[in-house]
């Protein structure tokens, strides 16, 4: 980053006003950060409270004696291990599929020339802006006709390719030098080998970002899983299992339970993001998009 781009040069102003301005700036930033973090902090704190503490009016902010009882209670209501495994299968397999299909199609749209390329790409791209609800009803029926309803395969299959991934890969593969590809061809490499052995390593940071986007998106995805898995809670990913915690006990007694469950569901995507957020932000900045 260069200089303060949207404020006038500070040197033009008296020293005291500069200090005031800087202080105000930092106060504003601090307030924004606190406001962003507060709900998540409240979630974690509440998950550590006793049921009595969660019911008090006015609310208690800090648990007097933090306890993991609520987490134990969650494990008594839902099979946490199973739910995590289901989430992992859904998000993991979907992500692997998206990476493979996006690489291949992105490569073709970036480096192959064929009649109708622009039109086909435009049609693919348009689907990126389609809200899922528009196709939900027939899609539900199609997956049922394929005998995949109430199964993880039914959740996964329709999402193995998406327009965002293709678009992202095309953008980055376009920047891979043609000489690199031509050299591999002269060595007798097949196009498939070129995609996965030459192109993929060359766009590794974008692939990492796409993997994170896809994994987090499908870890969090709710509407489609709910529609496909209707009521079969052995197949539920963790985000769907949370609804069972809510209905388990509709009194304020279950606050700690719900907060502990929410904390568990939030941890994997947040940890992934913390580890790899540089890729995320860089990729958005360079393409202006996420899925």
């Amino acid at each position: 980053m260069t200089m303060a781009a949207t404020l006038p040069e500070a040197a033009a102003r008296p020293r005291s006003r500069i200090a005031t301005g800087r202080a105000a700036l930092h106060a504003l930033a601090l307030a924004a950060g606190v406001a962003a973090a507060f709900p998540l902090a409240w979630m974690v704190l509440s998950s550590l409270k006793t049921p009595a503490e969660t019911m008090r009016t006015p609310p208690v902010w800090l648990p007097a004696e933090p306890t993991l009882d609520a987490y134990a209670a969650v494990a008594g209501v839902i099979d946490v291990g199973r739910a995590f495994l289901n989430s992992l299968v859904i998000a993991g397999v979907t992500t692997a599929g998206i990476l493979a299909t996006s690489l291949m199609a992105g490569y073709v749209f970036a480096k192959h020339h064929f009649p109708g390329r622009g039109a086909l790409f435009a049609v693919m791209l348009a689907t990126m802006f389609l809200p899922p609800i528009v196709t939900l009803i027939p899609l539900y029926r199609i997956v049922g006709a394929l005998q995949l309803d109430a199964s993880l395969a039914g959740v996964i299959l329709p999402n193995l390719a998406n327009a965002f991934g293709i678009f992202l890969m095309r953008q980055f593969i376009a920047g891979v030098p043609n000489e690199l590809i031509e050299a591999a061809r002269l060595d007798g490499a097949s196009e498939l080998r070129i995609v996965f052995r030459i192109v993929a390593p060359a766009v590794a940071p974008a692939l990492a970002a796409l993997a994170l986007f896809a994994f987090v998106y499908h870890w969090n995805s709710y509407l489609w899983s709910l529609t496909v898995l209707q009521g079969d809670d052995r197949q539920y990913p963790i985000v769907l299992s949370l609804s069972r915690l809510l209905s388990y006990n509709r009194s304020a007694l279950n606050t700690g339970l719900v907060m502990a469950g929410a904390t568990l569901a939030v941890l994997p995507p947040l940890l992934l993001f913390a580890l790899l957020q540089r890729f995320f932000v860089k990729t958005i900045v360079s393409t202006g998009l996420t899925g």
Binding site: A36, P39, W42, Y222, S243, V266, P269, L270, L272, V281
Partner: peptide, 21 residues
Amino acid sequence: TVLFSTYMVPMIAVALVWSKL
């Protein structure tokens, strides 16, 4: 990073936490 991190939180958890807030 802090601002962006909320975008990673599943909407279901957002809904549950805010219903308590």
